[in-house]
């Protein structure tokens, strides 16, 4: 067993990482096919020269940033309130939203938006995507905030109140600074989850709100282009760095 486990672990980590490494490696291949013919950066050039992709990137970033701002604010406040005293309605709803298959969340939001916006005659678009993302990101934010607050000593708040600060001052000057690394970690994870989503986004997106995963999906379906590899490699590295940053924040 002592010899078997490390050997097995090497194979398991290879299984987890090799597909992504090979994918990235072939983004530098000058042939369209899976035969190595020499180093090139032309696929990266193609990615940066593609206006459709540029627009999708801007859409994804906009959606990610707006959704992160809203979900982090709402989730931080809700997490703090739940920490103060349990709210079984919100906690249960959030757990349920995490358990609900993405496709079900997606169609329920689609049905909802069609229902509401039919009365307002507003088409699907960026706003519906942002609202959908806030909906499924909230649970992640609350979980990270609650984990952070578990290490926070309630006595600090009591001390602050005893020294004459009111509720709001206590929250703002004592609790928020202590939560800050948690808030930052929550925001980073929220952005990652939002930036990554395809299933829900594709259902509630309109003509003006094509996101990066939607472009990758349609390119992947169409077939072979190392440009998808180049794009994927860049996104994977960016998201990886993001998650590592989030992890570091959380540990602080």
């Amino acid at each position: 067993m002592k010899r078997f486990l490390p050997l097995y672990a090497v194979a398991a980590y290879a299984f987890l990482y090799l597909p992504l490494l090979v994918l990235s490696m072939f983004s530098f291949n000058s042939s369209r096919f899976s035969v190595w013919e020499g180093f090139t950066l032309k696929w990266y050039g193609e990615v940066f020269g593609n206006e459709n992709l540029l627009e999708a990137t801007i859409n994804s970033l906009t959606i990610g940033l707006v959704c992160t701002a809203i979900a982090t604010a709402v989730g931080t406040l809700a997490g703090y309130a739940i920490w103060k005293r349990k709210s079984s309605f919100i906690t249960n709803s959030l757990y349920l939203s995490l358990l609900t298959p993405e496709i079900v969340t997606g169609v329920s939001l689609l049905a909802f938006f069609q229902f509401v916006f039919r009365f307002l005659s507003v088409p699907l678009g960026m706003h519906t995507v942002i609202l959908a993302h806030v909906s499924f990101c909230l649970a992640y934010v609350v979980i990270v905030i609650l984990a952070r607050l578990r290490t926070f000593d309630k006595a600090l708040e009591e001390a602050s109140m005893d020294l004459g600060a009111n509720e709001w001052q206590t929250f703002w000057y004592v609790t928020v600074p202590a939560m800050l690394p948690g808030i930052a970690a929550a925001a980073l994870l929220c952005f990652t989850v939002s930036f990554d989503d395809y299933v829900i986004t594709s259902l509630v997106a309109g003509v003006d709100s094509e996101t990066l995963p939607m472009v990758i999906y349609s390119m992947a379906r169409k077939g072979v282009s190392p440009a998808v590899n180049a794009l994927s490699a860049m996104i994977t590295v960016a998201l990886g760095v993001f998650v590592l940053l989030a992890g570091r924040m959380e540990r602080k």
Binding site: L16, Y17, P19, L20, V22, L23, L189, T192, D196, Y198, P213, I216, Y217, A220, V228, S232, I235, T236, L239, G240, V243
Partner: peptide
């Protein structure tokens, strides 16, 4: 890897 894009991992 779980935190990187699910779509990209499937495409791989």
């Amino acid at each position: 890897p779980f935190w990187t894009s699910f779509l990209i991992r499937t495409y791989a």
